[in-house]
Design a protein around this nucleic acid. Structure first.
Length: 566
RNA sequence: GCCCCCGUAGCUCAGAUGGAUAGAGCACAGGAUUCCUAAUCCUGGGGCCGUGGGUUCGAGUCCCGCCGGGGGCACCA
């Protein structure tokens, strides 16, 4: 919708320049934004103000010149005027709204193609398989998943990948932890390793090992036993993680393994490449990558003095591997605690002659769980935290996903478990879902009245009957969807879609309360049905992008009240 | 000590190249259902945009300092 106007405006400015009324070649990008106040119209442009600054001419004069050259042959605008210091305010004509609505209902507007088939990889979660996922991981995972969905919906070829750090010390520590618990199970008194994993799941893994292999590891040489248990623990945890994420509606297209990356010699190969370029040197028995030369704060170790590779070394090779696979855009979704890592990774990318701009790192801030406003205590040290599974079981997939997405990544997230469970107007998830269900309910009613909703085609509908101000507003809101989608993808900000859906649902609920869709006037009824059907379609599509169900009935409230026992 | 994020209504947060009188939800107070689901809607009060400077015709937005909250600083993972 906006893009049509943008074209018109661009032409007008172009014409103004060619006509000699504006003497500039340096035109700002045309940004059309909703004005502060409704009376100012649907969209506003401050282009005249910006040009005024650059050209030293009065903004209103520039605005007038542009308006004079604006040729709206198709009549998409109802109003175009200058206001305030020199804003250009525009309102779309009802005729244009109807036309776009019809196009939307004919399915012509859903195919936004920003990506042109470009390959994008979203790497997220990538949690070391040394323990179960907790809430913070959940936010990161949902964020990454939705970024992938957004890209897939806009013409990108999006792939989700999970990178498994299965080669380093952490996995070894997991194995050692299991090993000690295993011996404990067999009656030995043990001293638990300092860097071991204290969580209860380690005991379970040990018990599992006992069931599977009996006393075998008691007699086996320690190193071999730890190794076997590492592998066992890693596989088991990965399975659990996969299960948790699966229940959250998240699956991956591929898993990358650090161990196999090393086995294939890619890590050594990458280091060799850097070495050949003189970017690796030895100091104090270790080997360092000259990341400082590429914008990092300091040089970083890639091989420790004991000969072990660092995780960073693997990460360099991993990202080289990603680019080699042909991805044109890489998105890494990390917890905010990894922020110190960005520079060194970008430095490495640059040193390998890839464009660091193609690598987007989204940092997702921490999650603070609360219950009725009171913080839920989580002790990292004791290994006790609220797991993602607990949250999932308590509030359900839809509420959890919605809450994780409600804030931009930069913001710390307060996640109130009580609120997420509440089935009332306080809970935004239900607000949006209810709007969708309400439309379904209207359809049900219409069918009972003999109106063929399902066969309703835009061509059979007289959209002009949608003449109320509420109706025009609602149509305009519906037609905003592609713009919101585009911004969400470009800015990597799914929360924009969440806010939009809340607004759309609100606009619909208001409309519903004011206007009866079904009436004796069949032509009017059909027009209104078409309108609410478009609302439903957009909400369903928007929720699908967030991985949230769009129910046709809001039944759970009654059912749960019943189950709760009066 | 250095780096990153945050600070906007009682609470949780939006605020898109700097632009018009700073918005929403919740909470609070009152009201709406003979009619498509009241999980809804309507009305209302609420603000030195942490703070002090600076740039600008114009700053919640940009720059510098300070205060408060969170995170990161390794031959850790």
């Amino acid at each position: 919708m906006k893009s049509h106007l943008r074209d018109l405006l661009a032409q007008a400015i172009d014409k103004t320049v060619r006509g000699g009324e504006l003497r500039t070649t340096d035109l700002p990008p045309l940004l059309l934004e909703p004005p502060k106040q409704r009376e100012f119209g649907d969209v506003a442009s401050n282009v005249a103000l910006i040009l005024a600054k650059r050209l030293g001419k009065p903004p209103r004069a520039i605005a007038e010149a542009i308006l004079r050259n604006l040729e709206d042959r198709e009549g998409i605008l109802a109003r175009a005027e200058i206001a305030g210091p020199g804003f250009l305010n525009f309102s779309f004509s009802p005729k244009f709204c109807y036309q776009r609505l019809r196009a939307l209902e004919e399915g012509k507007n859903g195919d936004l193609d920003l990506g042109k088939g470009q390959k994008v990889q979203v790497e997220f979660a990538s949690v070391n398989p040394t323990g179960p996922l907790h809430v913070g991981h959940g936010r990161v995972a949902v964020f990454g998943d939705v970024l992938a969905r957004l890209h897939a919906a806009t013409g990108f070829q999006a792939e989700r990948e999970y990178y498994i750090n299965d080669a380093g010390k952490q996995i070894e520590n997991l194995g050692l932890s299991i090993y000690m618990r295993y011996r404990e199970l067999h009656g030995e008194s043990i001293q638990f390793p300092e860097h071991g994993y204290p969580g209860g799941y380690v005991r379970e893994l040990a018990a599992q090992a006992q069931r599977l292999w009996g006393e075998r590891f008691l007699s086996e040489e320690k190193g071999a036993a730890v190794n076997a248990l590492s592998q066992h623990g890693c596989e088991a945890m990965l399975g659990a993680i996969r299960g948790d994420l699966g229940d959250f509606g998240i699956t991956f297209d591929s898993y990358a393994s650090e161990r196999s990356l090393r086995a294939k010699g890619e890590v050594e190969g990458t280091l060799e490449l850097l070495r050949s370029r003189g970017l690796i040197y030895s100091r104090e028995g270790a080997q360092w990558f000259k990341s400082q030369a590429y914008g990092d704060d300091k040089d970083r170790t890639v091989v420790k003095s004991d000969g072990e590779l660092t995780y960073f070394a693997s990460d360099i090779a991993y990202h080289r591997n990603k680019f080699a696979r042909g991805f044109k855009k890489l998105i890494n979704v990390w917890g905010a605690d990894h922020h110190g890592y960005i520079r060194r990774l970008k430095a490495a990318v640059k040193a390998l002659d890839y464009d660091p701009e193609l690598l987007h790192v989204v940092l997702v801030q921490m999650v603070q769980l609360t219950r009725g406003g009171e913080p839920v205590r989580m002790g990292k040290r004791s290994g006790e935290f609220v797991s993602l599974r607990e949250v999932l079981e308590e509030v359900g997939k839809d509420a959890a996903r919605f809450f994780f997405l409600m804030r931009k990544a930069d913001s710390h997230l307060d996640f109130d478990l009580e609120l997420a469970k509440k089935e009332s107007s306080e809970n935004p998830v239900f607000y949006v879902q209810y709007a969708h269900a309400r439309v379904a309910s209207i359809f049900e009613q219409a069918r009972r009245g003999g109106v063929a909703v399902d066969e309703l085609k835009p061509a059979d509908v007289d959209c002009k009957r949608l003449a109320l101000a509420e109706e025009i507003d609602l149509i305009k809101r519906v037609l905003q969807y592609p713009e919101v989608l585009e911004e969400s993808v470009q800015e990597l900000e799914p929360h924009r879609m969440v806010f939009y859906l809340l607004e759309l649902a609100g606009e619909f609920h208001r409309y519903y309360n004011r206007v009866r869709v079904i009436s004796d006037d069949l032509a009017l009824t059909r027009a209104r049905l078409l309108l609410v059907r478009s609302v439903q379609k957009i909400i369903r599509g928007g929720l699908a992008l967030l991985g949230i169900e769009a129910p046709v009935k809001m039944a759970s409230r009654g059912a749960e009240a019943l189950a709760a026992g009066q």
